[in-house]
Nucleic acid binder design. Sequence first.
RNA 1: CGGAACGUGGCGCAGUCUGGCAGCGCAUCUGCUUUGGGAGCAGAGGGUCGCCCGUUCAAAUCGGGCCGUUCCGACCA
Length: 431
Amino acid sequence: MRFSSCYIPTLKESPAEAEVVSHKLLLRAGMMRRLTSGVYIYLPLGLKAIDKVSKVIREEMRAAGFQELLMPMVQPADLWKESGRWEHYGKELLRFKDRNDRECCLGPTHEEVITDMVRGEVRSYRQLPVRLYQIQTKFRDEIRPRFGLMRGREFIMKDAYSFDADAAGAEHSYKVMHEAYNRIFRRLGIAFKSVEADNGSIGGSFSHEFMVLADTGEDMIVFCNECDFAANVELVQDAGRCPRCGGDVSLKRGIEVGHVFMLGLKYSEAMHAAFLDENGHERLMIMGCYGIGVSRIIAAAIEQNHDADGIVFPPAIAPMDCILLNLDPHNAAVTEKAEELYGALRGMGLDVLYDDREERPGVKFKDADLLGAPMQLVLGARSVAGRVVECKDRHSGEKGALSLDDFASAFLNWRDNVREGWGHVTEACGK
RNA sequence: CGGAACGUGGCGCAGUCUGGCAGCGCAUCUGCUUUGGGAGCAGAGGGUCGCCCGUUCAAAUCGGGCCGUUCCGACCA
């Protein structure tokens, strides 16, 4: 991508509408804009970050045996009446009527739709388990949307559903997904914790939340200092003692980015999702559902990784792997070299943002830091004369120089160093 | 929904208390100079002061209503 032909409207100052750092930085970095309360436009760079997160999720879902599908945003009220949630979901469910006066809603989640579909197709235990997921836009008419992408009304979510023939199978599906979530968040490079949680209005028998640790989080997590117990405080009556071993506990704030539920029979019973077992007896499918807040991950990653100059994206989330600054676009020798590097980096399969704009160096340095690309390369008359390209690791702040005569191998070595710097962050958590 | 604040060129803000020419910084356009951490000088363009009603000779400013945005609370896969 050439910066000069990209739509990246960066801002020097934070708009007054933003209060928390991720919201401010996403606006300043030209990654999103608000359309109305709790509803945002993802600009090209913000969408690239969403795509990067989605890519990791898709790989791990596939590895866990889940297939992708895409369900509709508009849903008929009938299904929600059948599950009982038309009554119980409350005003968060945005309801409306179509031209024929039929009641509809915008999908805040998809248990009803997928259960309806599966019950219509699956008749035999031989067809189970069914494991499906989608990455889709959800709408929840939140009482108070806030903090930008952290709690929007419209947001992007990965939701997965499993249907099993028996309890052992269902527990296996749950376990497989729990492990997949651990791998996803580890790969994304964010410090997180899996905790026991309340099931809320979705129902079911038990659940775990995946929390990104950040002081600005809306949730409070209890950690036991003695054993490995960790839970959302909602779940613990005496927040001063570990309910498992009685040991001392500590509290930390977190942002919920994932939630896995053992649903049991809640939906299959209400909507009669049944199959015939090997003895010809009718039985209900045992369900699980598993969500990841894709757009919220972007906000959470920024809450956790930023400094005074801007975003410090973990490599797996960054909209670009590398930003290449041409400080002297009028200097033919520098530009020739910059074009050459730009081509070489793309040849290595990297996502590169090439800053070829006719701007002063200071503007380019500021934008590079603000945008949060993990690797910065700087080329100017000074560095070209010395046969090097300067490099900066956005995360560690370390600067260096790579030889232009042996650029490819010098760059790959440096990239490994940059990646290792993130390895320590993710090893430190997420058991 | 309860409490609070805010709404003035694209962005950030002053002006409102005490009514009297709509301002500042950034951004934009033109010219010259500059060119390694958000350049300097000179000039230019751009605003129904959120909307409606009222008070007044006169309203960004005072009063009422509405809309929108944000924060705290309640709420929430």
